[in-house]
Nucleic acid binder design. Structure first.
Length: 261
DNA sequence: ATTGTGGCCTGCCCGC
DNA sequence: TGCGGGCAGGCCACAA
């Protein structure tokens, strides 16, 4: 998916729909409705109401309604995009097609003024739910404190990268952000999460915050300094040595064997 | 409980 | 030009 920065752009875009009466809901793909949501329950919950707030926790976008209205939860998988009144939240999404094709519209909320909010997701890896359990997510990666990060890494023997990407502990870090943060911080992604002293946790925390801030400034998770070299045969732009490539935490991982320790 | 694995679903890109 | 394999920014169910 979109990682945290993209979902933040979606959140901002979705503010356009606040306070607009909802006329209807199109949910043509039952697979796309999660945790018991149905086209019927979505219509019953939303029609005639309005959203009043757009929140984000990690990669989950939350649209709150006025009193008595269920909260709509949107998650975007790896290829989902948000389109409001025909305007897309991001221009480009790696690994997703940018073709304009109605067949990929999996979900739509229509407003009585004629506009709409759509989720376009070629791979159908995203989804829609009502009243999502927000407790299933850890603190947002943009807001997390160094102390919390220390606790998140904890005593775990799991690779630090897996821990950073565990949404139940820390919400918002995906594969690209994880690789970029660890590369900037000079940390081997395979290191056990417990093997960090407080100075190292602080350094990791600083790079986590700075990386996400940079990605928000630059326009997305694909703007990393490591990213262009994150290919087979790629070379570390700091050290000029070949990057390592392996599965870590179940995801393809690139790192520099020279400066990531 | 924690951690790793496989699978989901579809499109794209590369090499033959 | 056509085709098969590999790959993909995420997440969930399941097993050890």
């Amino acid at each position: 998916m979109p990682e945290l920065p993209e979902v933040e752009f979606y959140r901002k875009l979705s503010e356009r729909v606040l306070d607009r009466p909802i006329k209807g809901v199109d949910a043509p793909d039952a697979w796309y409705l999660k945790r018991g949501a149905t086209a019927r329950s979505l219509r019953a919950g939303l029609r005639g109401r309005a959203f009043v707030a757009a929140r984000r926790i990690g990669k989950l976008l939350l649209l709150d309604g006025s009193d008595g209205t269920p909260t709509l939860g949107l998650h975007f998988g790896m290829s989902g995009r948000l389109i409001v009144d025909g305007v897309a939240g991001v221009d480009d999404l790696m690994y997703a097609s940018n073709k304009d094709l109605g067949a990929w519209d999996r979900f739509r909320v229509r407003f009585s003024d004629g506009g709409d909010l759509r989720m376009r997701d070629p791979r159908r890896l995203g989804g829609v739910e009502l009243d999502p359990d927000e407790e299933r997510l850890g603190p947002d990666a943009l807001m997390v404190s160094a102390g919390e990060l220390a606790r998140i890494l904890g005593v775990s023997n799991a690779p630090v990268k897996a821990r950073l990407m565990d949404q139940a502990r820390l919400a918002g870090v995906g594969n690209l952000i994880a690789d970029e943060v660890l590369w900037r911080a000079g940390v081997d992604p395979r290191r056990p999460a417990s093997a960090f002293d407080s100075a190292e946790v602080k350094r990791l925390h600083r790079h986590l915050r700075k990386t996400i801030a940079d990605f928000l400034d630059r326009g997305g998770s694909h703007t990393g300094d490591l990213l262009p070299h994150r290919v087979r045969g790629g070379v570390c732009p700091k050290d000029g040595v070949s990057l390592e490539r392996a599965q870590v935490g179940g995801r393809t991982t690139y790192w520099c064997p020279t400066h990531q320790r």
